[in-house]
Structure formats: C-alpha cells, structure tokens
Write a protein that binds this DNA or RNA. Sequence first.
DNA 1: ACAATACATGAAGAATCATTCATCCTTTAA
DNA 2: TTAAAGGATGAATGATTCTTCATGTATTGT
Lengths: 125, 125
Amino acid sequence: MTPATGAAGGEPPVSEAVAERLADTMFALSSPSRVRIMGLLLAGPRSVTDLTNALGMEQSAVSHQLRVLREHDLVRAEKTGRRRLYALSDEHVSTLLHAALHHAGLTERPAGARQQPDGLGTVAW
Amino acid sequence: MTPATGAAGGEPPVSEAVAERLADTMFALSSPSRVRIMGLLLAGPRSVTDLTNALGMEQSAVSHQLRVLREHDLVRAEKTGRRRLYALSDEHVSTLLHAALHHAGLTERPAGARQQPDGLGTVAW
DNA sequence: ACAATACATGAAGAATCATTCATCCTTTAA
DNA sequence: TTAAAGGATGAATGATTCTTCATGTATTGT
C-alpha cells in the first residue's frame, strides 16, 4: 500500500481528540447567524437587544445562538444591570476570525461582488 | 437604543454574503471526519484507499466527505491511473488549517492531555 | 406592588447531515 | 474478455440543527 504517496506510518498527524475539538470550534462558526454575530462583536461589545436589532432576527434565536458561541468559548457575557454585554472572549478569537474572513474574502468570487474587495466593512483591528 | 455600547450605524461590519461564505467554509471543517482527512492531507497527498485505511472508516463514507471538501475548494483530486490522489487545494488552506489547529491546541484542555502540547503529530510545515 | 424591559430556556417541527448499503463506472491485470 | 481494484454516487435512516412560539426569571421604573 501507499506506493508513492508518502509516509503512512503510525500515529495520525492530527489526533482524533484534536480533530474533534477543532471540528467543534469550527462548528460554532458554521452558521451564518453566528458568523454575523461574531462580525458585529468584532466592532465591540453588544447587548442582546443590539444584536437582535442589527441582525433582524428574533431575540430568542439570537439568545440561542449566543449560547452556542458561549459554550464554545468564543464569546463571553458580562451582565450590567438587566442587560448582558456580549464580547469576543479574547483577542485570540478575533485573530482566528480575521484569518477566516481573509480566507473567505480571497476564495471563489460569486461573480457579482459589489462589496469591499474582501467583504469587510469598517473593521477596527 | 445602544446607550453606551459603541457605534451601531448603517452597514454591517461583515456583510451577510461574506458571513454565508465563511460559515460555509467553516462548515466543511465542522466534522471530525473531515478534519481528520485534512489532517492526513497536511502531511502530503493521499489516495482514497490510503485515507480509508488510516481513518478506519468505510470507503463510501470517505468519498462522501471528500466530496464535501472538494465542493468547498479545500481539497483537489488528481487522477493517476485508477486511483485519485487527494491533496489540500492550496497552501492558503493549510495556513488556515494550521491557524485553526493552533487555536484548538490552545483553548480549554480536556484535563487529560497526553498528546503533544498542541496535539499535533509530526507535521511538515 | 405593578408593569415593563432584557434575556434565557424548553418544546416542537422542518430541514440538514453523516453514515451505511447497494450499485455503477473506469482502469488495470490475467 | 473477464475479473478485480479504486472510487463515486443514490437512496435510506437516525441523529443534529436552526428557528419559532410560549413561557419563565431577574432587574429597573413608577
């Protein structure tokens, strides 16, 4: 087997555990709603109501998706008064997000791109 | 509204179109099987049979997942003889993958980490 | 105390996904 | 030509997922 393909030895290059962790994180970013939320948070902390208005979805849906992001440590909530301020959990996350956005901006253009060359709005790095 | 949260002006920081594209790409990496495949390809091109053996899943399942990766431009197939050599579609992808792996390696340790500090095996950069 | 605001959460339903099974196509070997 | 190897693909099925609806809890305002 593997007649000229390269080494195919013993331990896998990416352990199954890591694969699962990575997939899990990617999953959290695999829905447009959640990515849009992350996109908004990229510009600074937002309350659930802010997000709900900006996204044009139901408050319940936003909360549900925020929960997913929370459970995956992508965002953190800080409660002040009766509202909860959501923010990216750390700059590490925003780095990953930017990398991903950059990737998304470079690959396969749908022919009718009218947005910024990379699809980013005004983003504060 | 938005009483001290920051700007909440007009155009979204991440367009809906980009969010969809990004989510789409992330989706392709949101299953452990596909991540493991990518992990193997990180070490070099592999045939479907190679992957099937290394992964311990059925050939059909591997082909199905390869298709997803293909349709998302994450891998490319080159046919030589009666086998198909799959490889990461470009180095750009492997960059993103490494970034993601790095992220996965740093966040929340499941308490029982026995792998390399970052969970990577022998990986050729 | 009462009402309204801000969020969270459980249930339900439609849609989507990953895997297996069976089958088909193509290419090499006998 | 026949058979086998290497893959791809459609159908079926069980498991997840996203959204809406309804309702619950905590906090502020009057």
